[in-house]
Design a protein around this nucleic acid. Structure first.
Lengths: 101, 101
DNA sequence: ACAGACCAGTCTGTACCGCAAACCGGTCTG
DNA sequence: CAGACCGGTTTGCGGTACAGACTGGTCTGT
């Protein structure tokens, strides 16, 4: 068993990144969101958001659905089971690590 | 006023880095430590630890004292006022950001 | 006295990463 | 039909974490 502080050594870097932590937390709360909604919530640039979403997809933490809303393309994101689990573990680990006198 | 999640956008990257968060938390708790003690506590490599300490020093979060312990060189680190404050703010921000249903 | 192991760190090279701006295919407006 | 706008992706750049090689010096054994 390792101490809460040492556990920081192996936090999930994919989620630890602030922008992605924000995104993943949002998805955790809303269940589904499109690119633009995330764009406005996070206040990231488009390029930046796109890159982060790609990373989350590659890590297989989110499911991505591309479709057309009328004639305009739209991308939908959902946090999947793996993503939800990783976030919960991350939150627990961080809270423990930050919780001292 | 920004929501706790949005506040993630401007967390202090110097402290957010897991290795450094660990170091700074340790220093917060012990008040003073030398290189080797940190080395063993964190299980980082020497090069890595050295680089992190340099960064913390450059950010002016720690005070560094080089001296000799007998004939061997020894470096002592202490978290200064700025460092303590930044850590406290970071902890508060992270707890808020991670605290939702 | 000298060689080699060890010690406390620092320096260097590499691979990755976050970021914004440029770009792209397509749609809407005048 | 030209130019603004929309939903994203790609590119280029600067910065960063990391491990391993290196440095300057001390200790041990013979």
């Amino acid at each position: 068993m390792s101490t809460p502080l040492k556990a920081l050594g192996d936090v999930d870097r994919t989620i630890h990144e602030p922008a992605r932590l924000m995104i993943v937390s949002l998805l955790y709360l809303v269940r589904e969101a499109d690119f633009n909604w995330l764009l406005h919530q996070t206040e990231l640039t488009k390029g930046n958001l796109s890159a982060h979403m790609a990373k989350l997809e590659q890590a297989a933490y989110i499911d991505v659905e591309k479709r057309f809303q009328g004639k305009m393309p739209q991308t939908l994101y959902r946090l999947n089971k793996a993503g939800r689990k990783v976030l919960e573990q991350y939150r627990a680990a961080m809270r423990k690590a930050l919780d001292y006198s």
